[in-house]
Amino acid sequence: MSKSFLSVEGLAKRFPAPKGGKPLTVFEHVNFTVEKGEFVCIIGHSGCGKSTILNVLAGLDEASEGAVIMGGREVKGPSLDRGVVFQNYSLLPWLSALKNVTFAVRARHPDWRREKVTAHAYRHLEMVGISDGAEHRKPSQLSGGMRQRVSIARAFATQPELLLLDEPFGALDALTRGVIQDELLKVWGETHQTVFMITHDVDEAIYLADRILLMTNGPFAQVAESVEISLPRPRSRDAIVEDPRYYRIRNHLVHFLARRSKEMSGERRREPGARPTTVRFDAEGEPPAGGPRLYAVND
């Protein structure tokens, strides 16, 4: 356990009491690990502190308690080893798509020659399907989907050890979302980077992730469960829905979001050192002991 690539230990975020109010604990006792090359999604309702956890991992925010250890070292402040893709893309609007990527490549490799930087940027833009002149357009001249592709290309181009995605597809329509999910999987498959992603979309999480962390509602939110997605890779959308595990996983997640995330929240249920319960659905056999019965998909 202690040899994990990324290890989050006893993370908590608390805000001091405002005048005449009570102090607020958004989440506490957050413990989980991520292995190298793993694709992990985290799901939870708004306000449970998912984004804060991601920002702490990125080094952009500080936790009130606890520590994040990556590759044997404590995470302090932002670093090029941890690339971030924000929901609102965060492209620099005065630079073209290509320049946004070369901006990142140059920060990563200050010693590279200009041609090498440009070639590297082009390669990553092509991976996400930005080519044929679109790379010279400014973000304002690109659609939301194209912007998010550029943002993903920028993050992958710096070759971070850990890639953090904060609801990257939240603002996209379903079709574009599907296409970019596939591109993300393709790039991830080629680069074997470790990905930690926030999403609200249960199907997206099942399609993409090796493991899904489930968070209870805030305040006092916690990472309650770690659901292993044992569906074989490479996955295809039409094939995974045939898999008997798919709907069992899906029902489990939906049930958690609809009911258990609420039931388990609001009080200090768990011990400080508690790890999320691992939930695994095998191809055959019973749901895990203590797990829920099956619920309708649109529960």
Partner: peptide
């Protein structure tokens, strides 16, 4: 957001000033 981009790319204060803050 743009300042965060500079931070996650480990830009120094001077480079942040010239490549992010000044154009913005």
């Amino acid at each position: 957001d743009w300042l965060n981009v500079a931070r996650t790319h480990e830009l120094g204060a001077l480079r942040t000033a010239f490549t992010v803050i000044l154009p913005a």
